[in-house]
Design a protein around this nucleic acid. Structure first.
Lengths: 357, 357
DNA sequence: ATTTTTTCCGTTACCGTGCACGGAATTCAA
DNA sequence: TTGAATTCCGTGCACGGTAACGGAAAAAAT
């Protein structure tokens, strides 16, 4: 008797059979209750539920996954993972997360689209829907199209999560991304840390007007607010460059610094700081501090060489991994995420800590 | 036919039954080969191995965990998790990691010891060995005693991993911790970012001489090297305080700053920067930059208030989680970690990004 | 009261491994 | 050549759930 008692203390988790026995029903019925797929009388339902609650039963996810077979699919909808791009980083996170949810019987499948082509986005959407996934992770670039897409997901009651950019949308399960405003604020603080800034250059990308949602807009607002609060006498100028034309970029930088040679501090709000690195390295004396975003390989190398002073990293690989995790929790255990909007940490990378990322 | 073909594409993983069939043996024999527990003829062994290799078979961890039952235990050996301490942070990581490895049939159990009392360490060691864990994670404070302990683990062929501090030891599976030297270097860089440092104070803790391994020693070396390379004219002074006596600490700080009123930059190499925060906040004009380590709650609050300029966070919760993960990979799938020594990222926390940690 | 339909529930065959048990095949001793 | 001791291997149940199937009981229709 005592032996049994001590065994009980070893936290023998109640199984589906235990609650079947205690409620005087079979495990088939209990299973129907657990997944509430009907064919259960009100009375039995209540009985089972009360026993479940009493014993604090929670299903064994691994047995569940085994029985179900590797079947649940999470589909990802993100821009093409061009080598060296922001989205390639996200790809790494997808791979890692896939591994960790695989034992739970969840697989992932990626649908890419061209971020300059709304048509390709719509195409990817429809291919994704054909695959009938159990959950979806979206990095939404095209606002209106995304709205239509998520509406369809809601209709099929497929849960979905956003990362990187959020949509005004009532149905999403979770969002993982940077606190955009604060990231601009932080950027300005890091840029002006040496207290010697008087003329600042913001380099921006000529955007395709089709692109409807752009996280850098709010980022810029945070930046400007910091500047007017902490460096009211600073002059902030903007230069637009074309990401597809390196030579033109160089010329434009030449022209800019010829016109404003007092500019010593440079910032960019997207992941493309590496585009201006060649110019900066040909004019090492021109700038005192350079701040950019995101831990792309090219960016980190420039950081290690000292060309870039600081990178603010949002680690899209973590964001997408957490989105996948949240969807898995939902799909496998029906567990709602703790928070819906998850503003993730911003890491400050300098040449002295970059090698460990 | 075509339908089946498309299903086959869905990467039907080979099972133990497949390789049994193809090698003309039974799954029992295959199982014995997989866990090489003998009772298999040389011929059968080779045959099974070749089929395994050919099919690229890898065992289904979740089925394996289910069949085995929740049994494998990983024991943690760390100092007491006093509220507000560095080790409490680690506790959070343990809880999170426990959850994620639980589905794989691995549980965790923590053994605490008093970091000022070697006897309690030895006691915890023997209690841990009695529990006969399948793997061990150690934060080694007492060098010699740890050596004896790990020797015993090796004798029982129990794999073990270090975190926070490493031991000179040939048998450990993996180590997770900060790059100590670089962290000191980074600390100096962050402290002197405003280019106005001329007199610097290092606050240190009066250590119990029993404590034999202290990660802050190397950290200090990195700090001093940076200073002599980048701020050769800076004067660096040291003050020792007693962690148990706040009033005395205040008095000593009073005395120090009375003697050296030109001191504007302060750093500490351990997680106890919060000990001097009260004094700093009573003398807000005294210091220009203050740098400390570790994301303790009290430290982060001081950071948010602006008393502390920068915290370098090593996130022990991640370190211990990765150590648990590495051991789980070893125990469950026999997979060796990719790297033995894992120097983890150092995060720079400022008042503008701290709220998202 | 009998048939038909619905509602509800138990049974059963898996999912992929681990492992104990027992028996066949082989080797050794007599 | 026969019996005993070893090797070696196959069988079958267990792990905790899932879900299809079929049948009993209850409700509805005739």
């Amino acid at each position: 008797m005592l032996k049994f008692a001590s065994i009980m203390i070893q936290s023998e988790k109640p199984t589906i059979m235990d609650i079947a026995r205690l409620s005087g029903l079979s495990k088939g019925t209990v299973d129907r209750v657990l997944h509430n797929r009907g064919e259960v009388s009100r009375k039995s339902y209540d009985k089972v539920m009360s026993v479940i609650k009493e014993l604090g039963y929670e299903p064994n996810v691994i047995a569940s996954a085994l029985a179900r077979g590797v079947s649940r699919r999470i589909a990802l909808l993100i821009p093409e993972q061009t080598p060296g791009s922001f989205w390639e980083l996200a790809g790494g996170g997808i791979a890692k997360a896939s591994e960790s949810v695989a034992p739970l019987g969840v697989s992932t499948v990626v649908f890419n689209y061209d971020q300059r082509d709304a048509e390709s986005f719509r195409d990817a959407c429809s291919r994704l829907l054909d695959a009938a996934p159990s959950g979806v992770v979206v990095a939404p670039i095209f606002g209106a199209d995304t709205q239509m897409f998520t509406a369809e997901l809601r209709e099929h009651s497929i849960p979905y999560a956003f990362f990187d950019t959020k949509q005004d949308d009532e149905g999403y399960l979770a969002y993982f991304g940077l606190p955009e405003y604060k990231s601009g604020y932080l950027c300005a603080d890091q840029l002006t840390l040496d207290r010697s800034a008087s003329e600042v250059l913001l380099v921006r990308i000529k955007r395709d007007p089709l692109r409807q949602s752009d996280p850098t807009v709010i980022r810029r607002a945070g930046f400007m607010d910091y500047m007017s609060e902490h460096c009211p006498d600073c002059i902030v100028r903007t230069l637009f460059i074309d990401p597809g034309d390196p030579e033109r970029t160089d010329q434009e930088l030449d022209a800019f610094f010829a016109a404003f040679p007092g500019t010593t501090h440079v910032a960019m709000f997207n992941s493309r700081i590496h585009l201006i690195v060649p110019w900066l390295e040909r004019h090492p004396a021109q700038t005192r501090r350079v701040v950019g975003f995101d831990n792309l390989k090219a960016n980190m190398e420039a950081l290690a060489r000292g060309t870039v002073s600081v990178l603010i990293a949002q680690h899209p690989e973590e964001q997408v991994a957490m989105a996948i995790q949240a969807l898995t929790d939902m799909i496998v255990m029906g567990r709602q995420p703790a928070r819906r909007d998850n503003y993730m940490h911003m890491d400050i990378l300098t040449r002295y800590n970059v090698e460990f990322y």
